[in-house]
Amino acid sequence: MSLDKATVARIARLARISLPDEDLAPMADELSGILKWIEQLNEVDTAGVEPMTSVVGHPLHHRDDVVTDGGCREDILGNATETADGYFVVPKVIE
C-alpha cells in the first residue's frame, strides 16, 4: 500500500501539522516505506498466537474512588496564554 499526496495532506490536516506542498511527495514516500515494512510483518503466520498487548507482565492498576487531586487552579492555568475569571480563554470556536 502506498499513500498519495492528497492522503498525506489530509492526515496532516487532521493532526494539525502544517506541511508545505513541496514536502508532501517526500513525506508520502517515507510513510509508504513504513507501511511496506508493516505489510512485510503481515506475511508471518500468527495463527494461534495470542495477541500481545503489552511487554509488561502485570495487570492494569486501579485507584480507589476518593478525591485526591484538584484545587490547584493557579498551576492548571499557569501556562495558558490567556485567562479570565478562572477560565482558559481561546479564540471564539462556535458556528
Binding site: A84, D85, Y87, F88, V89, V90, P91, K92, V93, I94
Partner: peptide, 13 residues
C-alpha cells in the same frame, strides 16, 4: 466551552 461570556472569545472550564 462557554461562548457567551465574551463577544469574540470562548471560555474553557
Amino acid at each position: 466551552s462557554v461562548h457567551d461570556l465574551s463577544p469574540d472569545r470562548t471560555y474553557v472550564d
